[in-house]
């Protein structure tokens, strides 16, 4: 465990908590893509099946449980409790265009052709693109609430910190996982445009709105 990995995990946790709190406090999930949140719930479910097969550390197990529980709570708030505030008309990204190719790719390119390994690979590939429905929704409405941009910032920062963590681990531990690294690079690149807007607009106190 190095500092980049730890801050990456905490950044990921911060993002998840920010989103949950935003929905809970405002009693509304306006501007949030339920589809992205469904995909993240699917990502955590398929990745953390090893909770049943192996124990790594108390930290590892508790973080996994927290991530899974929070992602399901978020989906519940969006699709059940605050369904009336869900902006489904703008959440029109076709998730099958992500899930089907990612499913196929995880069968073709994986470390080991076994059910758990394929599901883990699927979750890695899916996570890298799971934010697309949310970014699509923002580009469609042309704006995002500031709190939503904080959520996206921490979510993007998490994978960027993981990239530094992987460089660190490659040099100091000889650890290298090509699938995770390539997916992580793709995932981080998807946030670059948003990072630019976040720094140039949100951090200067302006609302994130895109030119028409």
């Amino acid at each position: 465990m190095n500092i980049f990995r730890l801050t990456g995990d905490l950044s990921h946790l911060a993002a998840i908590i920010i989103l949950l709190l935003k929905i809970w406090k405002t009693r509304s999930c306006a501007g949030i893509s339920g589809k992205s949140q469904l995909l993240f719930a699917l990502v955590f479910t398929t990745r953390y099946l090893d909770l049943f097969t192996s124990f790594i550390s108390l930290y590892n197990t508790s973080m996994k449980l927290i991530y899974v529980a929070c992602s399901y709570a978020t989906v519940y708030l969006i699709y059940m409790k605050f369904k009336a505030t869900y902006d489904g008309n703008h959440d029109t990204f076709r998730v099958e265009f992500l899930v089907v190719p990612v499913g196929g790719l995880s069968f073709l390119v994986n470390h080991d052709f076994s059910p758990l390994e394929i599901l883990w690979t699927f979750s890695i590939y899916l996570e890298s693109v799971a934010i697309l429905p949310q970014l699509f929704m923002i580009s469609k409405t042309g704006e995002a609430e500031t709190i939503t941009t904080h959520y996206l910032f921490f979510l993007g920062l998490y994978r960027a910190l993981y990239l530094i963590n992987w460089i660190w681990r490659y040099y100091f531990e000889g650890f290298f996982d090509l699938i995770a690294v390539v997916a992580g690079v793709v995932q981080t690149i998807l946030y670059c445009d948003f990072f630019y807007l976040y720094v140039t607009k949100v951090l200067k106190g302006k609302k994130l709105s895109l030119p028409a």
Binding site: D50, N60, Y67, E117, F175, D177
Partner: peptide
Amino acid sequence: KIILKQKDEL
């Protein structure tokens, strides 16, 4: 050495 498939990350 290069180690593959280590699932200690989240």
